[in-house]
Amino acid sequence: MTAYRHVTFGEIRVSYTPALDGGGMGFGQAYVPFVREHLGPVDRLLEWCAGPGFIGFSLLAAGLCGTLDLADVNEDTEPAVRDTVRANGLDGRATAHVSDCFAQIPPELSWDLVVGNPPHVNSDDARTDYRRRHSPLIWQDSDWAIHRRFYRQVRDRLRPGGNVILQENHRFSSPDDFKGLIEESGLDHVGVFDCGPGLEDYYFLWSRLPDTGTGS
């Protein structure tokens, strides 16, 4: 049995191991004030590349989503998420998925908001301390292949008015690296936003479904 560590957001105690921590309980917490200020509560939320769910569970604890799906390609994340769900009585409100992007997530599921702290490094880049401390599953996305797959698929998983907000790292990418992927996906590029004081390395990349209303 895995001996989990724990961190608490609001009234939710999240189970994790150091190997699953890609920064979500640190810089990832910038999501809470950002979503509160710019979107407010949503019904259905997905955290993509979720790890143990630091971002998603913090948004749930803050009352910023009604239900939460958490998806990661790493099979070790699922038992950690399930431990959190069980310990906090979140059955029916939070669900773990082991999935390569959306491939293994039930096709009927869709969301009002998709967030994520995906791999930030487009290479086997020796400059990053991630390389020494973490599995490549957490930090490496060569040729932005994971991002490309995500943006090709995410539009069909958004509910009307749905939004996508990913957290990226200025040290290893430029927003221009992703703007073409957003355009090709058919989403509207809303903008690039700072993550707040002390988090100057990081930025939010916001896109959303186009408004198809015809007006009056």
Rank of each mutant, 00 (worst) to 15 (best):
F54L: 05
I105K: 05
D76Y: 00
P106V: 11
I105Y: 01
C101G: 01
E78R: 13
D125G: 06
F102Y: 12
P118G: 07
D124K: 13
L70I: 04
D124W: 13
G116V: 05
R127G: 07
A50L: 04
C65T: 14
G116F: 02
L113D: 07
H120C: 12
L90I: 07
G116A: 05
V98K: 03
R82N: 14
A71R: 04
C65K: 08
N74Q: 10
T67Q: 12
L68C: 11
P79N: 04
N88E: 13
G89C: 04
L113T: 09
V73E: 12
A96Q: 06
D112W: 08
D100F: 00
N88T: 08
P107K: 14
N122S: 15
P119L: 07
N88R: 09
A80G: 06
P119I: 00
L113I: 10
L90D: 13
E75V: 13
D129I: 03
E75A: 15
G63M: 11
T84V: 10
R82I: 00
C65D: 09
R131I: 04
T95Q: 14
L70G: 04
R93E: 09
G66Y: 05
Y130F: 15
P118T: 01
D69R: 01
L113K: 11
L109V: 03
T84F: 07
A50Q: 09
S110E: 10
G92D: 10
Q104C: 02
